[in-house]
C-alpha cells in the first residue's frame, strides 16, 4: 500500500485539528497508508517572509530531517507547500519541496482522482488563496474536487482572486491596510449568501473567519452575517 507522510502545519497543529484529520480520512478512503511524523513543527514560512533567513533555514533543515525519507508529503496548506518548493532550494539547497504536495495536487496529479466520494449538502463559496493559486499554481484543482462532491451547491465569490489581507505579519505590521482588504473580502463573502466559505489554507481562513465573526459582533446581529470558514479538505472528507 502506498505510504504518504502528512505535514499538518504549525497553524493546524495549534488551532485547527479538523483539516489534517480530514486529510487522513480522505487519503485512507483512497487506500493510502498515512504516516504522521511526530517530530514535525513548522516549515519556516513566517520567519522567511518576515525577513529572518537564518531562522527559516534552521526550520527548513529540521523539516528536511523529519520528512527527508518520504516520496510524498501531503499538506493541507498551499502556502506551506509553496514555501518548501520555492524557498528551500536557495534557503538550504534542498529540493524536498518537489515531494511536498498540497492536498489537491496530490489527489489530482498523483492519485488521479477528482471524485473522492464526498457528500456535502450545503452552499459553499470558494476563496482561492494567493499562495496556493499564484505561488503554487493550483489553478482550479481544489474547485475540480469540490465540483465532484455530491449535493454541494457552489456559489461564485465576487472578486475571488483578491487577497484577503492576511499576509502573515503583514496583518500586524500594516494592520490598517490589511483590515481594509479584509473588510472587502468579508463583504464579498457575505454577499454570496453561502453557508460556508472554503479555502486551501487555514491561515487565510483564520483571517477571514475572524473578520466575519467580528463584523457580526459589531453589527450585533443575531443571525450570521457571513459564511462559516471551512477548510476544503473537511468538505472532501464529509460523507454526511
Amino acid at each position: 500500500m502506498p505510504r504518504v507522510a502528512l505535514f499538518i502545519t504549525c497553524v493546524n497543529d495549534a488551532l485547527f485539528p479538523a483539516a489534517p484529520k480530514a486529510v487522513v480520512q480522505i487519503l485512507e478512503r483512497l487506500g493510502y497508508d498515512v504516516d504522521f511524523p511526530e517530530a514535525q513543527t513548522c516549515c519556516g514560512q513566517m520567519h522567511a517572509n518576515s525577513g529572518y533567513k537564518q531562522d527559516a533555514a534552521t526550520l527548513a533543515s529540521a523539516f528536511e530531517t523529519v520528512f527527508g525519507d518520504y516520496d510524498a508529503i501531503v499538506t493541507p496548506s498551499g502556502s506551506c507547500a509553496a514555501m518548501a518548493r520555492d524557498q528551500y532550494p536557495h534557503l538550504i539547497g534542498s529540493d524536498i519541496g518537489d515531494h511536498v504536495y498540497e492536498l489537491s495536487e496530490f489527489l489530482i496529479d498523483v492519485a488521479g482522482v477528482e471524485d473522492v466520494g464526498a457528500r456535502f449538502p450545503h452552499t459553499v463559496t470558494y476563496h482561492p488563496t494567493c499562495h496556493g493559486t499564484r505561488a503554487l499554481g493550483l489553478g482550479d484543482k481544489p474547485m475540480r474536487l469540490l465540483r465532484a462532491v455530491e449535493d454541494i451547491e457552489l456559489v461564485d465569490l465576487p472578486a475571488a482572486d483578491q487577497c484577503c489581507g492576511f499576509g502573515g505579519t503583514f496583518a500586524l505590521k500594516n494592520s490598517e491596510v490589511s483590515s481594509a482588504m479584509l473588510a472587502d473580502k468579508c463583504r464579498n463573502a457575505a454577499a454570496t449568501g453561502a453557508e460556508y466559505l472554503a479555502a486551501a489554507d487555514n491561515s487565510c481562513l483564520t483571517h477571514i473567519g475572524g473578520g466575519i465573526s467580528r463584523l457580526q459582533h459589531t453589527a450585533g446581529a443575531a443571525e450570521r452575517r457571513g459564511p462559516r470558514p471551512i477548510h476544503y479538505a473537511e468538505i472532501l472528507a464529509s460523507t454526511a
Binding site: L172, L182, G209, R214
Partner: peptide, 9 residues
C-alpha cells in the same frame, strides 16, 4: 494589531 478588526480562534 490583530484583534483591532478580527477575532482570534
Amino acid at each position: 494589531r490583530w484583534t483591532v478588526s478580527r477575532d482570534l480562534p
